[in-house]
Design a protein around this nucleic acid. Structure first.
Length: 559
RNA sequence: GCGCCUGUAGCUCAAUUGGAUAGAGCAACGGAUUUCUAAUCCGUAGGCUGCAGGUUCAAUUCCUGCCAGGCGCGCCA
């Protein structure tokens, strides 16, 4: 039985509580702590007294070594040897599957039969230009979720919804008119220029709408013009994202929902609900008064006056089409209210609603980022800069530069710096975020590289009999305790879908390891202790590596 | 104007979802290399958790009001 489970079971029996809230305290308050305040509410007794009472009733076992009431807390001290043996053996056995609660419950390590299928949609950038760093937040967050869920044994499909028929694409098509050999790098300038132009001469908008109208009527030439531009753009975007090791299983094109008449069918369905009507200007709108949305006039506009489709209609058709039992959708905070509207519409049609994951925008020191206005930092520029700085960094340390390794470190630093910030917070972009020391990706990679170096030097198998009672120091026991927390960390990550939980955990694990590394020599230790410490170090490496991989960060053999 | 999110050390972020002494990194200063990688470690300094009330045994966390920033509120996506 897991130590945590054993404590919870005992407490449940003694207190009649359904949920036991165990804390892992800091300082010398033991391995687990149970606060007794909640009990004092019902029993009207002093929490300190309750803790004292419980202290005498808890049974000491081979796992629970000591129980101590300290004020209103009941602190549990576990048997070091048993914990060390349980957890280190488990890691050695499960390797890169360690931490995945689902796998262990199923009793085997790969492909357990009833894997739930989950569709994750993320990135879904407008195909109008190279992505800026704000968009990276979507892709990185989405990629993290995909990796986490795959690690947990789900069958995950990653989708990218391509808006290939919006007004912005039409503008880009207009801007590209009569130009040959347009490349990905031309798009941003074209896009900025056409926006400026239309702002100055609003009558040009008519041409844009005409183009859209022609497209929706299925004019082949127009279709091809749109498709060509979109193709250039999506390919360019994907090249950048794939450089960051972010991949997609399927691309869904908005236009398909027109050609297959699925948008029309959605309108038919909505008509049956009695909430769809034509407004004064002959647009199809969905009445959403009944849902108490915080808007002045709660309607969802689905078409233009000429009945060409608007994004919400295509999006609605898309979500209905997803048909998975579980969908996750990564969205910018600007989509929050819109998502509520989408949710209401889907509910009205009795369709499943995706689980949204929101993130806030990346701002510049000078103000907001805008692709349209051209004040932005491109993801590719950020990546290039990171790589350049990292290459220089390596030059100060080594004679030779391995470009693959430089990329792993540079991109790891980028991913880490973005994922370590809670998604709901705004980020003000600064080149200073590109650090390689301290609370950074490279710090974690470095910890792994150091362990690799030791394992290389030892050069024997470490799976022999190990005396688990040899771990005497605080540094060793602290590491063991932390390793035992990993499964809980993964569980919490899955529940909240927040990358920061894993980030914080592996960072403090690496910190504890550095501590251990300085104070506890491994290879120089006496033979039995050496073996025990080697196993401990390789376990730490395994867990940091697993954590980093879930964040999409690779590790290195040497640094 | 209304709704949602955010405000913590000079800077960038944590804080076990209401718990014990609010913790890290960067920057600053001082130290550690006959020992497994110094992208490391140790130490010093740095706090009225935006402000004012309230709820309770306990508030950075929950409630109310203000202040500041972000996002949104019909034909963009």
């Amino acid at each position: 039985m897991e130590p945590r489970e054993e404590i919870i079971n005992q407490l449940k029996e003694l207190t009649n509580l359904k949920e036991i809230n165990l804390e892992t305290p800091k300082g010398n308050f033991g391995d687990y702590a149970f606060p007794c305040f909640a009990l004092s509410k019902t029993s009207k007794k002093n929490p300190a007294q309750i803790a004292k009472d419980l202290e005498s009733k808890i049974k000491v076992t081979n796992i629970i070594e000591k129980v101590q009431a300290v004020g209103p807390y009941l602190n549990f001290f576990l048997n070091r040897k048993v914990i060390a043996e349980t957890i280190l053996k488990k890691i050695a056995k499960e390797k890169n599957k360690f931490g995945s609660g689902k796998h262990t419950k199923a009793g085997h390590h790969v492909g357990y039969p009833t894997a739930e299928k989950i569709l994750v949609e993320h990135t879904s950038i407008n195909p109008n230009a190279s992505p800026h760093i704000g968009r990276a937040r979507n892709a990185l967050l989405g990629d993290f979720i995909v990796r986490l869920l795959k690690f947990q044994g789900y069958e995950v499909q990653t989708h990218y919804f391509v808006n290939d028929i919006g007004k912005q694409i039409a503008m880009l098509v207009l801007a590209a008119e009569g130009r040959e050999n347009i490349t990905f790098n031309d798009l941003l300038t074209l896009y900025i220029k056409i926006n400026e132009k239309i702002e100055k001469e609003p009558e040009l908008e008519k041409d844009v709408f005409e183009l859209l109208n022609k497209l929706e009527r299925g004019d082949e030439k127009t279709k091809k013009r749109f498709a060509d531009i979109v193709d250039i753009c999506v390919k360019g975007q994907l090249e950048i994202l794939s450089e960051l090791n972010i991949k997609y299983d399927k691309f869904d094109f908005e236009s398909d929902y027109l050609w297959t008449k699925k948008t029309e069918r959605v309108l038919e369905e909505l008509k049956k609900t009695g909430r769809l009507f034509l407004d004064d200007e002959q647009r199809y709108v969905l009445d959403q008064k009944e849902f108490n949305l915080p808007m002045e006039s709660p309607v969802l506009v689905l078409t233009r006056a000429d009945k060409t489709s608007l994004y919400p209609l295509r999006d609605l058709a898309y979500h209905i089409d997803k048909k998975k039992t579980k969908n996750i959708l990564v969205l910018g905070e600007d989509q929050k209210l819109y998502f509520q509207q989408l949710k209401c519409a889907l509910t009205l049609l009795n369709k499943p609603v995706p689980i949204p994951v929101f993130y806030s925008f990346v701002l510049l020191e000078t103000g907001k980022m805008s692709t349209r206005k051209g004040n932005l930092v491109l993801l590719e520029d950020f990546m290039r800069e990171a790589l350049q700085r990292e290459t220089e960094e390596i030059r100060t340390r080594h004679d030779r530069i391995n470009e693959e390794d430089a990329k792993k470190i540079a991109y790891g630093a980028i991913k880490y710096s973005i994922l370590k910030v809670s998604p709901e917070r705004n980020v003000i972009f600064s080149w200073k975020a590109l650090q390689f020391e301290g609370d950074t990706g490279p710090y974690l990679q470095y910890a792994c590289a150091r362990i690799n170096s030791i394992l290389r030097k030892y050069d024997e198998k470490i799976d022999e009999k190990i005396d688990f009672s040899l771990f005497k120091t605080n540094e060793e026991n602290n590491l063991i305790k932390m390793l035992a927390d990993f499964e809980g960390i993964i569980e919490e990550s899955e529940r909240t879908l927040k990358p920061t939980i894993i980030v914080n955990y592996i960072y403090s694990l690496a910190q504890s390891f550095s501590n251990f590394y300085i104070k506890c020599p491994i290879l120089k230790a006496e033979e039995k202790l050496k073996k025990a410490r080697l196993l401990l170090a390789s376990s730490v490496k395994q867990v940091i590596e697993t954590g980093l991989n879930i964040l999409g960060i690779e590790t290195l053999e040497k640094m």
